[in-house]
Simulated assay, not measured.
Amino acid sequence: MQIKKLMAGISLAGLLLLGGCSNNKKADNDSDVKHVGVLQVVQHPSLDKAYKGFKKGLKEEGYVEGKNLKIDYQNAQNNQDNLKSMSEKLVNEKSDLMLGIATPAAQSLANASQDIPIVVTAVTDLKAAKLVKSDAKPGKNVTGTTDMVSIERQIKLLLSIVPKAKTVGIMYNAGESNSKIQADLATAVLKKAGVKVLIKTANSTNDVQQVTETLASKVDGIFVPTDNTFDSAADVVGKVVKEKKVPLVASSVDQVKTGGLASIGIDYELLGEQTGKMAAKILAGKAKPADMPVEKAHDMKLVVNKKMAKALGIDPKSIKAPK
């Protein structure tokens, strides 16, 4: 009996030892996996594509989900309380790096941690959002890509489509600092061109239809900056401007594809891909956010919604990108 007990004890000890080795091996493997926390402010095509591109950029640099990369994706659905709690969650999980998609998400992550590396995308002005000290030398734990486009070119595009325009409308969510920056720039360009400006704002997607209907009945053309609220309701905007026969130029390519006429805008998937490659350098220890200049989109292109053009009685081929 004692021999059996002794043998059983030896077997148990052996199993425990093997188990310990297995756990150590797992721990070693886990240490090779990079944990990335992602916070997106709301779900709509442009931001979804930015996230898709981000993962593609990481993959191209050798970071693959399920292999050496784990992503914790959080979507706040445009709720401020969600932004705060989700940011804290990603920080508490000790992410190796965090991604903020759109200005509110980026600011929430930056407020939650001054230590964990953060990259951002779909943010118009990182300095104005107090995310970096300067675009050339961020100086903090945050860097990334800006979706700022040439507002002057967008307005020139709109005025080339409606050259006799006397009044141009601008609509956006005043609660989004990135949108206001672009709206102010557009206003200045229009006034310089001698065009009257009429501004309408929406606090949520519930207000978009009424705002668009009111504005479209009073103007010769409409400009919409990159704006999460109006991007989320692009189909609603499209129905109204088509019915009112009002040309709409937007900074977002996806807004145009869904409910606008034209844009010299950004492909958010490509912008996200740029961001992913920046993140890969940080994860590999080749760079730090403080020293990585903020990057602009590599490619800007003219996008024309041909169906919308025909519905407005405009020849799509007549729309050209101004210099």
Rank of each mutant, 00 (worst) to 15 (best):
G285K: 08
A188F: 06
A202N: 12
A309H: 09
K133I: 05
V303S: 03
S46K: 05
L15G: 15
K301T: 15
S232E: 04
N82I: 12
A202I: 13
S252I: 00
H298Y: 05
D28T: 09
D30E: 15
K286H: 07
S318D: 13
A183G: 13
K245L: 06
M171A: 02
S179Q: 10
P225L: 08
Q77Y: 03
D48Q: 08
K301Y: 08
A321E: 15
L83N: 03
Y51M: 01
T124L: 11
K245G: 08
T124I: 12
K301I: 02
K127P: 13
P104N: 03
D291K: 11
E93N: 07
A311M: 04
S217C: 02
A309Y: 02
M300T: 05
V303D: 00
S95H: 11
L15S: 14
V224W: 08
V38F: 02
I10L: 15
G9E: 10
T205I: 15
T167I: 03
K281S: 09
F54I: 05
K130Q: 15
V142T: 05
V119E: 09
A8M: 14
T226C: 12
N82Q: 13
D115E: 14
A250R: 00
M7Y: 06
Y51E: 05
L83S: 01
K34I: 01
S95G: 11
A279F: 01
I181M: 14
T145L: 01
I319E: 13
V64Y: 12
I222Q: 04
G66R: 13
H44G: 02
A105G: 09
K67S: 14
G276F: 09
S318Q: 14
A174N: 14
K140E: 05
P289N: 01
S150L: 04
T143G: 06
E269I: 01
K296W: 00
K25W: 13
E65C: 13
K239W: 00
K89N: 15
K307C: 05
D267P: 00
V195Y: 01
Q274D: 03
V256H: 06
L215H: 08
L18H: 02
L185I: 10
G238T: 02
G259I: 07
Q274S: 04
